[in-house]
Design a protein around this nucleic acid. Structure first.
Lengths: 146, 146
DNA sequence: TTAAAATATTTGATATATCAATTATATTTG
DNA sequence: CAAATATAATTGATATATCAAATATTTTAA
Protein backbone atom coordinates (compact mmCIF):
# COMPACT_ATOMS: atom_id res chain seq x y z
CA UNK A 1 0.00 0.00 0.00
CA UNK A 2 2.92 2.34 0.74
CA UNK A 3 0.89 4.92 2.55
CA UNK A 4 2.82 8.02 3.57
CA UNK A 5 3.12 8.32 7.34
CA UNK A 6 0.77 10.83 8.97
CA UNK A 7 3.73 13.07 9.68
CA UNK A 8 4.27 13.52 5.95
CA UNK A 9 0.78 14.76 5.17
CA UNK A 10 -0.78 18.19 4.99
CA UNK A 11 -3.06 17.24 7.86
CA UNK A 12 -0.04 16.95 10.10
CA UNK A 13 1.03 20.42 9.03
CA UNK A 14 -2.41 21.86 9.69
CA UNK A 15 -2.56 20.24 13.09
CA UNK A 16 0.93 21.30 14.11
CA UNK A 17 0.24 24.87 13.03
CA UNK A 18 -2.91 25.28 15.05
CA UNK A 19 -1.28 23.61 18.06
CA UNK A 20 1.70 25.95 17.82
CA UNK A 21 -0.63 28.93 17.67
CA UNK A 22 -2.64 27.71 20.64
CA UNK A 23 0.47 27.13 22.71
CA UNK A 24 1.87 30.53 21.81
CA UNK A 25 -1.41 32.28 22.50
CA UNK A 26 -1.96 30.45 25.77
CA UNK A 27 1.49 31.37 26.98
CA UNK A 28 0.89 35.05 26.33
CA UNK A 29 -2.49 34.95 28.02
CA UNK A 30 -1.17 33.09 31.07
CA UNK A 31 1.55 35.65 31.55
CA UNK A 32 -1.07 38.30 32.24
CA UNK A 33 -4.18 36.50 33.41
CA UNK A 34 -4.23 33.85 36.07
CA UNK A 35 -6.29 30.77 35.36
CA UNK A 36 -7.68 31.70 31.95
CA UNK A 37 -7.61 29.34 28.98
CA UNK A 38 -7.90 30.41 25.35
CA UNK A 39 -11.24 28.70 25.05
CA UNK A 40 -12.60 30.36 28.16
CA UNK A 41 -11.39 33.68 26.79
CA UNK A 42 -13.18 33.05 23.51
CA UNK A 43 -16.39 32.26 25.36
CA UNK A 44 -16.11 35.64 27.08
CA UNK A 45 -15.46 37.44 23.80
CA UNK A 46 -18.45 35.85 22.10
CA UNK A 47 -20.80 36.44 25.02
CA UNK A 48 -19.66 40.03 25.26
CA UNK A 49 -20.55 40.67 21.64
CA UNK A 50 -23.67 38.46 21.61
CA UNK A 51 -25.14 38.25 25.11
CA UNK A 52 -28.08 36.13 24.05
CA UNK A 53 -26.11 33.16 22.82
CA UNK A 54 -27.26 29.82 24.21
CA UNK A 55 -24.75 27.28 25.50
CA UNK A 56 -25.32 25.24 22.38
CA UNK A 57 -24.55 28.21 20.15
CA UNK A 58 -21.41 29.09 22.07
CA UNK A 59 -20.36 25.46 21.87
CA UNK A 60 -20.52 25.56 18.08
CA UNK A 61 -18.52 28.77 17.91
CA UNK A 62 -15.67 27.29 19.91
CA UNK A 63 -15.91 23.76 18.49
CA UNK A 64 -17.02 21.98 21.63
CA UNK A 65 -19.97 19.68 22.12
CA UNK A 66 -22.83 20.52 24.45
CA UNK A 67 -21.63 18.36 27.29
CA UNK A 68 -18.20 19.93 27.25
CA UNK A 69 -19.77 23.37 27.17
CA UNK A 70 -21.93 22.59 30.20
CA UNK A 71 -18.83 21.65 32.17
CA UNK A 72 -16.76 24.49 30.84
CA UNK A 73 -19.40 26.96 31.94
CA UNK A 74 -19.63 25.16 35.29
CA UNK A 75 -15.93 25.85 35.72
CA UNK A 76 -16.25 29.47 34.64
CA UNK A 77 -19.14 29.97 37.05
CA UNK A 78 -17.06 28.45 39.85
CA UNK A 79 -14.23 30.80 39.00
CA UNK A 80 -16.68 33.72 39.02
CA UNK A 81 -16.29 34.74 35.40
CA UNK A 82 -19.90 33.88 34.58
CA UNK A 83 -23.30 33.41 36.17
CA UNK A 84 -26.17 31.27 35.00
CA UNK A 85 -29.61 32.85 35.08
CA UNK A 86 -32.90 31.47 33.90
CA UNK A 87 -34.23 32.68 30.61
CA UNK A 88 -37.92 33.46 30.96
CA UNK A 89 -38.41 33.41 27.19
CA UNK A 90 -37.37 29.78 26.94
CA UNK A 91 -36.82 27.99 30.18
CA UNK A 92 -34.78 25.26 28.58
CA UNK A 93 -32.04 27.75 27.82
CA UNK A 94 -29.95 29.51 30.36
CA UNK A 95 -29.00 33.11 30.13
CA UNK A 96 -25.27 33.33 30.67
CA UNK A 97 -24.16 36.53 32.29
CA UNK A 98 -20.67 37.95 32.54
CA UNK A 99 -19.65 38.95 36.07
CA UNK A 100 -17.55 41.97 36.96
CA UNK A 101 -14.55 39.70 37.19
CA UNK A 102 -15.35 38.49 33.68
CA UNK A 103 -15.64 42.08 32.51
CA UNK A 104 -12.24 42.75 33.97
CA UNK A 105 -10.80 40.02 31.83
CA UNK A 106 -12.49 41.56 28.82
CA UNK A 107 -10.40 44.68 29.40
CA UNK A 108 -7.13 42.81 29.60
CA UNK A 109 -7.66 40.18 26.96
CA UNK A 110 -8.21 42.01 23.65
CA UNK A 111 -4.75 43.59 23.37
CA UNK A 112 -3.14 40.25 24.13
CA UNK A 113 -5.18 38.50 21.48
CA UNK A 114 -4.50 41.29 19.03
CA UNK A 115 -0.80 40.82 19.60
CA UNK A 116 -1.09 37.04 19.28
CA UNK A 117 -2.82 37.27 15.94
CA UNK A 118 -0.55 39.96 14.59
CA UNK A 119 2.72 38.39 15.48
CA UNK A 120 1.76 34.91 14.37
CA UNK A 121 0.71 36.29 10.98
CA UNK A 122 3.74 38.52 10.55
CA UNK A 123 5.15 38.42 7.02
CA UNK A 124 2.06 36.83 5.54
CA UNK A 125 0.38 38.82 2.79
CA UNK A 126 -3.32 39.56 2.45
CA UNK A 127 -3.30 37.42 -0.66
CA UNK A 128 -1.70 34.49 1.10
CA UNK A 129 -4.30 34.67 3.83
CA UNK A 130 -7.01 34.65 1.21
CA UNK A 131 -5.46 31.62 -0.51
CA UNK A 132 -5.16 29.85 2.82
CA UNK A 133 -8.81 30.51 3.54
CA UNK A 134 -9.90 29.26 0.12
CA UNK A 135 -7.90 26.06 0.16
CA UNK A 136 -8.80 25.15 3.72
CA UNK A 137 -12.45 25.76 2.98
CA UNK A 138 -12.27 23.37 0.06
CA UNK A 139 -10.87 20.65 2.30
CA UNK A 140 -13.52 21.34 4.88
CA UNK A 141 -16.28 21.19 2.31
CA UNK A 142 -14.94 17.90 0.98
CA UNK A 143 -15.01 16.43 4.47
CA UNK A 144 -18.52 17.59 5.16
CA UNK A 145 -20.18 16.65 1.89
CA UNK A 146 -19.09 13.10 1.30
CA UNK B 1 -10.22 48.05 20.35
CA UNK B 2 -12.63 46.55 17.81
CA UNK B 3 -11.09 43.12 17.73
CA UNK B 4 -12.61 40.75 15.19
CA UNK B 5 -14.36 37.83 16.86
CA UNK B 6 -12.43 34.55 16.85
CA UNK B 7 -14.92 33.17 14.35
CA UNK B 8 -13.77 35.73 11.81
CA UNK B 9 -10.11 34.81 11.89
CA UNK B 10 -7.97 32.43 9.91
CA UNK B 11 -7.32 30.46 13.10
CA UNK B 12 -10.98 29.60 13.26
CA UNK B 13 -10.81 28.37 9.68
CA UNK B 14 -7.74 26.28 10.38
CA UNK B 15 -9.32 24.76 13.44
CA UNK B 16 -12.62 24.04 11.78
CA UNK B 17 -10.86 22.39 8.85
CA UNK B 18 -8.81 20.01 10.92
CA UNK B 19 -11.83 19.20 13.08
CA UNK B 20 -13.92 18.45 10.01
CA UNK B 21 -11.20 16.17 8.68
CA UNK B 22 -10.89 14.37 11.99
CA UNK B 23 -14.61 13.85 12.25
CA UNK B 24 -14.82 12.60 8.67
CA UNK B 25 -11.81 10.30 9.10
CA UNK B 26 -13.05 8.95 12.43
CA UNK B 27 -16.43 8.15 10.96
CA UNK B 28 -14.88 6.15 8.14
CA UNK B 29 -12.60 4.28 10.52
CA UNK B 30 -15.39 3.49 12.97
CA UNK B 31 -17.51 2.03 10.22
CA UNK B 32 -14.95 -0.71 9.71
CA UNK B 33 -13.01 -1.03 12.95
CA UNK B 34 -14.59 -1.30 16.35
CA UNK B 35 -13.05 0.80 19.09
CA UNK B 36 -10.23 2.45 17.16
CA UNK B 37 -9.55 6.17 17.27
CA UNK B 38 -7.57 8.10 14.67
CA UNK B 39 -4.83 8.76 17.17
CA UNK B 40 -4.55 5.13 18.16
CA UNK B 41 -4.42 4.23 14.47
CA UNK B 42 -1.61 6.72 13.94
CA UNK B 43 0.33 5.22 16.81
CA UNK B 44 0.06 1.82 15.12
CA UNK B 45 1.18 3.23 11.77
CA UNK B 46 4.22 4.92 13.27
CA UNK B 47 5.22 1.90 15.35
CA UNK B 48 4.83 -0.36 12.36
CA UNK B 49 7.24 1.73 10.34
CA UNK B 50 9.59 2.55 13.22
CA UNK B 51 9.42 -0.19 15.87
CA UNK B 52 12.04 1.38 18.08
CA UNK B 53 10.21 4.58 18.82
CA UNK B 54 9.99 5.46 22.49
CA UNK B 55 6.73 6.63 24.02
CA UNK B 56 8.12 10.11 24.13
CA UNK B 57 8.95 10.04 20.43
CA UNK B 58 5.54 8.68 19.49
CA UNK B 59 3.97 11.38 21.63
CA UNK B 60 5.69 14.09 19.61
CA UNK B 61 4.61 12.55 16.33
CA UNK B 62 0.95 12.58 17.30
CA UNK B 63 1.03 15.85 19.26
CA UNK B 64 0.41 14.46 22.71
CA UNK B 65 2.38 14.97 25.88
CA UNK B 66 4.13 12.13 27.68
CA UNK B 67 1.45 11.69 30.30
CA UNK B 68 -1.28 11.38 27.68
CA UNK B 69 0.84 8.91 25.75
CA UNK B 70 1.37 6.75 28.83
CA UNK B 71 -2.39 6.53 29.30
CA UNK B 72 -3.11 6.10 25.63
CA UNK B 73 -0.75 3.16 25.49
CA UNK B 74 -2.27 1.79 28.70
CA UNK B 75 -5.59 1.78 26.90
CA UNK B 76 -4.15 0.18 23.78
CA UNK B 77 -2.47 -2.50 25.87
CA UNK B 78 -5.77 -3.19 27.64
CA UNK B 79 -7.47 -3.49 24.28
CA UNK B 80 -4.74 -5.89 23.14
CA UNK B 81 -3.39 -3.78 20.29
CA UNK B 82 0.01 -3.35 21.97
CA UNK B 83 2.26 -4.90 24.57
CA UNK B 84 4.89 -3.22 26.71
CA UNK B 85 8.23 -5.00 27.01
CA UNK B 86 11.38 -3.88 28.74
CA UNK B 87 14.16 -2.51 26.62
CA UNK B 88 17.45 -4.02 27.77
CA UNK B 89 19.44 -1.30 26.01
CA UNK B 90 17.89 1.43 28.12
CA UNK B 91 15.70 0.30 30.92
CA UNK B 92 14.00 3.64 31.26
CA UNK B 93 12.39 3.16 27.87
CA UNK B 94 9.81 0.56 27.10
CA UNK B 95 9.78 -1.38 23.91
CA UNK B 96 6.27 -1.17 22.53
CA UNK B 97 5.25 -4.22 20.53
CA UNK B 98 2.32 -4.60 18.18
CA UNK B 99 0.16 -7.66 18.92
CA UNK B 100 -1.49 -9.84 16.30
CA UNK B 101 -4.70 -7.94 16.86
CA UNK B 102 -2.77 -4.74 16.21
CA UNK B 103 -1.32 -6.23 13.04
CA UNK B 104 -4.82 -7.09 11.93
CA UNK B 105 -5.77 -3.44 12.23
CA UNK B 106 -2.72 -2.54 10.17
CA UNK B 107 -4.20 -4.57 7.31
CA UNK B 108 -7.56 -2.85 7.46
CA UNK B 109 -6.52 0.69 8.24
CA UNK B 110 -4.32 1.85 5.33
CA UNK B 111 -6.95 1.72 2.58
CA UNK B 112 -9.37 3.62 4.80
CA UNK B 113 -6.81 6.31 5.52
CA UNK B 114 -5.85 6.47 1.87
CA UNK B 115 -9.47 7.07 1.00
CA UNK B 116 -9.84 9.68 3.74
CA UNK B 117 -6.87 11.66 2.51
CA UNK B 118 -7.79 11.37 -1.13
CA UNK B 119 -11.38 12.38 -0.86
CA UNK B 120 -10.76 15.24 1.51
CA UNK B 121 -8.16 16.65 -0.88
CA UNK B 122 -10.24 16.15 -4.00
CA UNK B 123 -10.07 19.08 -6.40
CA UNK B 124 -7.02 20.59 -4.74
CA UNK B 125 -4.01 21.00 -6.98
CA UNK B 126 -0.43 20.05 -6.17
CA UNK B 127 0.42 23.72 -6.26
CA UNK B 128 -2.32 24.64 -3.83
CA UNK B 129 -1.08 21.98 -1.43
CA UNK B 130 2.39 23.40 -1.69
CA UNK B 131 1.11 26.91 -1.00
CA UNK B 132 -0.86 25.66 1.95
CA UNK B 133 2.22 23.97 3.36
CA UNK B 134 4.34 27.08 2.90
CA UNK B 135 1.90 29.52 4.46
CA UNK B 136 1.07 27.31 7.42
CA UNK B 137 4.74 26.72 8.07
CA UNK B 138 5.30 30.45 8.20
CA UNK B 139 2.61 30.83 10.83
CA UNK B 140 4.02 27.95 12.80
CA UNK B 141 7.51 29.40 12.67
CA UNK B 142 6.21 32.77 13.83
CA UNK B 143 4.56 31.13 16.81
CA UNK B 144 7.62 29.17 17.79
CA UNK B 145 10.26 31.86 17.41
CA UNK B 146 8.85 34.81 19.27
C1' DT C 1 -55.93 20.29 23.38
C1' DT C 2 -53.41 16.29 24.45
C1' DA C 3 -49.85 13.02 22.83
C1' DA C 4 -45.74 12.82 20.23
C1' DA C 5 -41.66 14.82 18.61
C1' DA C 6 -38.10 18.17 19.01
C1' DT C 7 -34.88 21.04 21.60
C1' DA C 8 -31.54 22.67 25.43
C1' DT C 9 -29.20 21.21 29.02
C1' DT C 10 -27.38 17.98 32.26
C1' DT C 11 -25.28 13.67 33.92
C1' DG C 12 -22.58 9.31 33.78
C1' DA C 13 -18.87 6.77 31.99
C1' DT C 14 -14.55 6.58 29.88
C1' DA C 15 -10.68 8.64 27.33
C1' DT C 16 -7.64 12.29 26.70
C1' DA C 17 -5.05 17.01 27.93
C1' DT C 18 -2.07 19.32 30.98
C1' DC C 19 0.79 20.54 34.77
C1' DA C 20 3.53 19.28 38.59
C1' DA C 21 5.62 15.86 41.30
C1' DT C 22 7.65 11.19 41.63
C1' DT C 23 10.30 7.03 40.32
C1' DA C 24 13.74 4.50 37.97
C1' DT C 25 17.57 4.51 35.25
C1' DA C 26 21.51 6.81 32.56
C1' DT C 27 24.82 10.22 31.87
C1' DT C 28 27.79 13.81 33.21
C1' DT C 29 31.00 16.00 36.08
C1' DG C 30 33.91 17.08 40.03
C1' DC D 1 34.17 6.51 41.52
C1' DA D 2 30.27 9.24 43.86
C1' DA D 3 27.27 13.06 43.57
C1' DA D 4 24.71 15.86 40.67
C1' DT D 5 22.11 16.22 36.61
C1' DA D 6 19.38 14.57 32.88
C1' DT D 7 16.04 11.54 30.79
C1' DA D 8 11.83 8.26 30.19
C1' DA D 9 8.00 6.98 32.07
C1' DT D 10 4.42 7.11 35.57
C1' DT D 11 1.04 9.09 38.77
C1' DG D 12 -2.16 12.54 40.84
C1' DA D 13 -5.24 16.24 40.23
C1' DT D 14 -8.22 18.76 37.45
C1' DA D 15 -10.20 20.08 32.98
C1' DT D 16 -11.92 18.80 28.70
C1' DA D 17 -13.81 15.38 24.79
C1' DT D 18 -17.25 12.23 23.48
C1' DC D 19 -21.09 9.26 23.41
C1' DA D 20 -25.33 7.76 25.23
C1' DA D 21 -29.01 8.33 28.32
C1' DA D 22 -31.89 11.29 31.22
C1' DT D 23 -34.52 15.63 32.35
C1' DA D 24 -37.07 19.69 31.52
C1' DT D 25 -39.35 22.46 28.48
C1' DT D 26 -41.32 23.79 24.03
C1' DT D 27 -43.26 22.90 19.57
C1' DT D 28 -45.81 20.14 16.39
C1' DA D 29 -49.47 17.32 14.93
C1' DA D 30 -53.34 14.19 15.34
Amino acid sequence: MNLPLPSETIFHTIESTIKAYRKFAQKNISEQIEDMTIDQGMVLLFLNEHPDLSQKEIAELVFKDNASMTRMIDTMVQKKYLERALNPEDRRRHKIEITNKGKGVLETLPPIIHHNRNSSLKGITKNELKQLEIILSKIKTNCENI
